[in-house]
Design a protein around this nucleic acid. Structure first.
Length: 582
RNA sequence: GAUUUCGUAGCUCAGCUGGUAGAGCAAUACACUUUUAAUGUAUGGGUCCUGGGUUCGAACCCCAGCGAAAUCACCA
């Protein structure tokens, strides 16, 4: 691998440090007694030019990454960044080097440290004449040397950011760098975890059990989606990565648990977009003896609580909108919503009339779509995006909800709701179908849809039906997309901003030849850097060079250019030998 | 999967009509004891994404490929 000039310089510094008897990667632990953010908070009242003389902040031990270095002769300023924030350091030559020998300051600090290095510092807190809260350093130690330069955004006093590290590809591929140089990125992830913790606490308090169910499933089910397929060697059988855990959690309700939930990584083999990652997280919750009306109240309460825990208020800014999660949320039946946005009442229509309506409304349809799918398309096309404030949509057509219980009073519908927020579904819930005979028929209808060409139709799960036949109590079920909800709660426009490591195409690695590969065809090891410099990164590239004279001249010229005076030029016969293929 | 846009130094980006590759930050050297986007002076740093083509000459025009983003389709 060709190193950039800056990377080479840092490697040389590494050697110089070792020569000075300083280990750049020491093994000992480093004791810490304070964090930058706490100092900023606790010493906010300190006046300019005043120091903390007693207590914790008169003897601070901090550790973190060096993020800025402003050398000013015998004194220097630097910024250190730890897990909680940043603080300025003041380093005076004669204080860190009280003896004659000033190497530690002049050489180690000024020349051998780089931005990105981890250091530990000891000192006291004071405020400079310029008003900056600062740690006056008495001692420092290198904890870990950084060999690659960080992309370094700068912020001026008005808060304008320059040279920000913004390229999405690099940010997602090298999230570690993104997190170091873009502090707000960290914030979104902290909020995401807080969101999940809020849910967990809320559900635990109600006495529901957090459980784990299989990710590798012999039959995938519980949702309409294409799965990932894998293979188990010993059993010699196909397994699927789960697309949902619904059917397993319901088996647990059959088994006698009153409430179970799982934060479940699910996998769907479909397109990617800023709303879709192949693996994503859902929470699913099932509670016995409840119905979907009850579940709606739970969702409202839980999500309102999340907003308050994360933001201290029910109002959350999302893009252009302020979304208010305060209870109660608006409720629409699906037919009401469609009528509200299109002025068309479709509640009494048959399939043919629905097709006609779709055409009138410019909704794209195809032959495989049944009645339920048609209604869903109209809703998706004309209603969903317009629902910004959290809204419950209730009572879905039975055809698109094969696991939901038939509506207690409305023919052709099921007891199901979704919560829509910022134009996107954030949860899906229903009174669970617990009539095993009805459930079998619904699976069979799915098989029919599959035959009509719907490649996301569900498969029939005999074991699940057997479980239902033993009896499942009336149950309310819920699924909430954690990633989607996190996007809203942290005001991020893309799912990749709430996933640490979003799925990406593999980085293309040019298959660079190793030194040994060059040596194998007769190149002296000391000449390898020259060939790499010339751009012959692979043996093939080298051997496909037809002009021996040119190669010979280039090598000799480059040797001179790189000032490799100790390296002997190859003879022309030598060069010729590299290119002969044997 | 389709369309559009983008790919130039470690980072952010200029680069005119095709004519020797540029800036700021970062790096290196020197100066500087409270600076803060520190400053001043000097220096080094490039597979212009890859491969073809057109041309006397390509970062620039054409074709193909790779990667990314946005929009759309499928989906949560």
């Amino acid at each position: 691998m060709q190193l950039s000039e800056q990377e080479q310089i840092r490697r040389e510094k590494l050697q110089t440090l070792r020569k000075l008897g300083i280990e750049p990667y020491p093994a000992d632990l480093y004791p810490i007694n304070a964090y930058t953010a706490d100092i900023q908070q606790d010493c906010a009242e300190l006046e300019p030019k005043q120091s903390v003389e007693t207590g914790k902040y008169s003897e601070v031990n901090l550790a973190g990454r060096l993020m800025s270095l402003r050398v000013q002769g015998k004194a220097s300023f630097a910024d250190i960044q730890d897990s909680k924030g940043r603080i300025q350091l003041y380093i005076n030559r004669d204080e860190v080097c009280p003896q004659e020998d000033k190497t530690l300051y002049n050489e180690v600090f000024k020349k051998l440290l780089d931005i990105g290095d981890f250091i530990g510092v000891k000192g006291f807190v004071f405020r400079t004449g310029m008003g900056e809260l600062t740690l006056h350093v008495k001692e420092f130690i290198l904890l870990s040397k950084s060999l690659k330069p960080l992309p370094l955004p700068k912020t001026d006093k008005d808060g304008n950011i320059y040279d920000a590290f913004t390229d999405p590809e690099q940010r997602y591929r090298q999230r570690y760098v993104d997190l170091v140089v873009n502090p707000h990125v960290k914030d979104a992830f902290v909020k995401r975890t807080k969101l999940m913790n809020t849910m967990r606490e809320y559900l635990n308090e109600k006495g529901y059990l957090e459980v784990e169910t299989p990710i590798l499933q012999p039959l995938y089910g519980g949702a309409a989606a294409r799965p990932f397929k894998t293979h188990h060697n010993t059993l010699d059988m196909t397994l699927y990565l789960r697309i949902a855990n619904e059917l397993y959690l319901k088996r647990l309700i059959v088994g006698g648990f009153e409430g179970v939930y799982e934060f479940s990584k699910d996998f769907r083999n479909e397109g990617m977009s800023r709303f879709h990652n192949p693996e994503f997280t859902q929470i699913e919750l099932y509670v016995a003896y409840k119905d979907y009306e009850w579940m709606m109240n739970l969702v409202e309460e839980m999500v309102e609580k999340i907003a308050i825990n994360l933001h201290g208020t029910t109002e959350v800014k999302v893009g252009e909108h302020i979304i208010n999660f305060q209870r109660p949320w608006k409720r629409f039946t699906m037919f009401e919503a469609i009528e509200h946005f299109t002025q068309i009442d479709i509640s009494e229509m048959d399939e043919a009339q629905l097709r006609e309506t779709c055409q009138k409304l410019n909704v794209k349809i195809d032959e495989s779509m049944g009645k339920g799918k048609l209604i869903d398309e109209i809703f998706g096309e004309h209603c969903e995006a317009k629902l910004i404030q959290p809204t419950f949509i209730t009572d879905y057509p039975v055809e698109m909800s094969p696991l939901a219980k038939k509506h207690r009073s409305k023919e052709g519908l099921v007891e199901r709701f979704e919560a829509i927020c910022n134009g996107k579904e954030i949860c899906n819930s229903f009174s669970e179908l617990n009539d095993p005979i009805d459930q079998r028929e619904r699976f069979q209808e799915q098989l029919e849809l599959g035959k009509r060409g719907d490649d996301e139709a569900m498969v029939l799960d005999e074991d699940f039906l057997r479980a239902l036949e033993y009896g499942m109590p009336p149950t309310a079920g819920l699924g909430i997309g954690i990633d989607r909800l996190s996007m809203i709660m942290t005001n991020q426009p893309s799912i990749q901003d709430v996933l640490f490591f979003p799925q990406m195409r593999p980085e293309k690695k040019p298959t660079l030849a190793q030194e040994a590969d060059y040596v194998k065809i007769g190149v002296r090891a000391e000449l390898v850097p020259i060939l790499q410099k010339l751009g012959y990164a692979t043996i093939e590239a080298l051997q496909s060079e037809e002009n021996i004279n040119k190669l010979f001249n280039d090598v000799c010229g480059t040797r001179k250019k790189m000032k490799l005076n100790d390296v002997k030029n190859p003879t022309k016969e030598e060069v010729e030998a590299w290119l002969s293929n044997d």
